[in-house]
C-alpha cells in the first residue's frame, strides 16, 4: 500500500518538475529542476527494485550532468565580458 502511494507521489513530483524545467525562463533554475528530476527518478527506481540503477542515476544523471552544464554556462559567461 505504501509503495503505491509513494509511486503516485513521486510520479506527480517528477512530472511537475519536468514541466517547470521546460517552461522556466531562467536557465540556472531550469538546470536545477532537471537535476531534481533525476534525483527523484532515482527514488522511483528504488521502489521498482533496482538499487544499482538508482545509484548510477544519482551519481551520473544528477551530479556529473549538472557539473557539465554549469561548466559550459560559466565558459559562455566568461567569453561575454
Amino acid at each position: 500500500m505504501l509503495n503505491i502511494i509513494l509511486a503516485i507521489f513521486l510520479g506527480i513530483l517528477i512530472i511537475v518538475l519536468a514541466i517547470m524545467a521546460v517552461l522556466n525562463k531562467n536557465i540556472v533554475v531550469a538546470i536545477i529542476a532537471a537535476g531534481a528530476v533525476s534525483l527523484f527518478a532515482s527514488v522511483l527506481y528504488l521502489i521498482l527494485a533496482a538499487p544499482d540503477v538508482a545509484m548510477t542515476e544519482a551519481a551520473i544523471g544528477s551530479g556529473l550532468s549538472t557539473i557539465i552544464f554549469f561548466y559550459v554556462l560559466n565558459k559562455i559567461n566568461r567569453q561575454n565580458g
Binding site: 540556472v28 534525483l39 532515482s42 538499487p51 545509484m55 544519482a58 551519481a59 544528477s62 551530479g63 554549469f70
Partner: peptide, 17 residues
C-alpha cells in the same frame, strides 16, 4: 548504500551551484 550516494551527490550539487 543508495541513501549514502544520494546524500553525497545532493551535497555536491548545492556546492557547485
Amino acid at each position: 548504500d543508495v541513501a549514502m550516494v544520494y546524500g553525497l551527490l545532493s551535497f555536491l550539487g548545492v556546492i557547485i551551484v
